[in-house]
Computed example of a mutant assay.
Amino acid sequence: MDAKEKVGRYEFVAEPFHVDFAGRLTMGVLGNHLLNCAGFHAADRGFGIAVLNENHYTWVLSRLAVEMTDMPRAYEKFSIETWVENVYRLFTDRNFAVLNAEGKPIGYARSVWAMISMETRKPADLFLLHGDEITSYICADKPCPIAKAGRVKVGDAQPVAEYHTRYSDIDLNGHVNSIKYIEHILDLFPLEMYREKTLHRFEVAYAAESHYGDVLGFYREQKSENEYDIEVRKNGTETAIRSKVVFE
């Protein structure tokens, strides 16, 4: 199988209702597009969520790191490429490239996914369902020149914000949607910061599921002038996610 068949490419337009006050595509919308592309790519190759659901499995996002040098502006066309970099017994690495209308890369993303049992919510062996077929789509030689998500540690402190999860936070798996966390985290920063700086890199690692009615506490620690580590704890104790936000 050649590299073209291993890489999926999907076209988009930055709709005016998907951009922020400065006319740039929001990170939350970009995150949704990345996840949708992952779904399209997997489905086209026989290991999409519909096939998994028939066997009582589903895909869940474990880690995501996005690094952008620019963002599409309102009404601009752009595209996203995605490919599988590695497949392990319990996880798979999937990468992305974001291209502007001229086909020039303006950002990249790295993600880690797990296939879990819908009954036990525990990771399942990818090879039990897919055999070796899924490995035929590995495209290890296509570059993704950004670092993987790193370690995030936030010291004990008072939360800078609390949020009660609501109807609009819950996805079809019955837990808080992955992208909703991104939106809530970026809302921790004042509008003035987004006027003066641009969001360069966003990392998130998912540790535990949150559900309707959970109270999320957001803990933030500034690591440098433009870098912040954030931990989201549910109901005052268990860590739900860890995140890093880098401006420039």
Rank of each mutant, 00 (worst) to 15 (best):
E11I: 11
G28R: 11
L90M: 11
K4E: 00
G48H: 05
E15G: 05
W83M: 07
L52G: 00
S62Y: 13
C37Y: 04
T58K: 15
R45K: 13
Y75G: 11
K77V: 15
E5P: 07
H33D: 07
E54P: 09
A74W: 06
N53H: 15
E5C: 11
F91N: 04
A42G: 03
T82I: 06
T58E: 10
D44Q: 06
Y10W: 04
N95E: 05
T69Q: 13
V7Q: 05
F17N: 05
R45N: 05
T58F: 06
L30K: 08
L64F: 08
P16W: 14
Y57M: 10
T69A: 08
R9N: 02
L30Y: 09
A42S: 07
L30V: 08
N36K: 01
V66D: 00
D2L: 04
R73Y: 14
E15W: 10
M71G: 01
F96K: 08
L25V: 04
F21Y: 12
G46P: 00
E11T: 06
A43K: 07
E67N: 11
D2E: 00
R63W: 07
K77N: 04
E76W: 05
V66L: 02
T92W: 06
L30A: 13
N95I: 01
E85P: 08
L52C: 06
A14K: 09
T82R: 05
F91R: 14
R45I: 08
L64T: 12
F17I: 00
G23S: 07
L99W: 02
D93R: 09
V19A: 09
D70Y: 08
G28T: 08
A65R: 14
L30I: 12
N100S: 15
D44H: 06
E67S: 15
E15S: 09
W83I: 01
A50S: 09
G46C: 02
E67G: 04
P72C: 06
A14M: 10
N86P: 07
N100W: 09
V87Y: 13
N36S: 07
H33Q: 08
Y88H: 07
N55Y: 10
D70M: 10
E67D: 13
F21N: 05
E85S: 11
F78L: 14
T82D: 00
L64R: 13
L34M: 13
L52A: 08
L35H: 11
K6W: 01
P16G: 01
L25E: 10
E76R: 10
M71T: 14
N53F: 15
F47G: 07
R45A: 04
R24M: 14
H18L: 12
Y10Q: 01
E11A: 13
K4L: 06
V13H: 00
N100M: 12
I49A: 03
R73W: 12
F12I: 00
G46Y: 12
G28N: 05
P16H: 04
L90E: 00
N36G: 12
K4G: 05
N32C: 11
F12H: 02
L34T: 03
F96C: 10
